[in-house]
Amino acid sequence: MSVDRRQRPQAEGGRVVPNYAFTAGRTRSLAGSDMPIEALVTATEMGLAKAPGMPPEARAIVEASTEPQSLAEIGALLGVPIGVARVLVSDLAAEDHLAVHLPLVGTDGRPRRELLERLLDGLRAR
């Protein structure tokens, strides 16, 4: 082994970023750019009822979301960058055409313990 991580300069451009946490009680709108890439969306009844009259992209999102879809999947479905998908989804959520299911994290910004335990159980059962 000729290479050692300690023997090289620190990674270039190391930006120090304060640890982000979904702080308890932080007020914010869903329409913000904080909607994470794994956020799940599901179509509401109202959204499904109104889908036929929607612009094609909005309609495609709502109709695909009869099954839960992540923001990442919406982006892939439409072939648009995540940022574009986020705007489209936020607009639909603001009108209650979509429900958004956000990750559940503790005050340390990490998934809560009981979720990790369920994840572990699920993986072991595979």
Partner: peptide, 16 residues
């Protein structure tokens, strides 16, 4: 407005 579990935002409004 403090949620003990730190749930990020008002997640599931308008659920069918």
């Amino acid at each position: 407005s403090v949620h003990a579990d730190g749930r990020a935002g008002t997640a599931t409004t308008g659920v069918a």
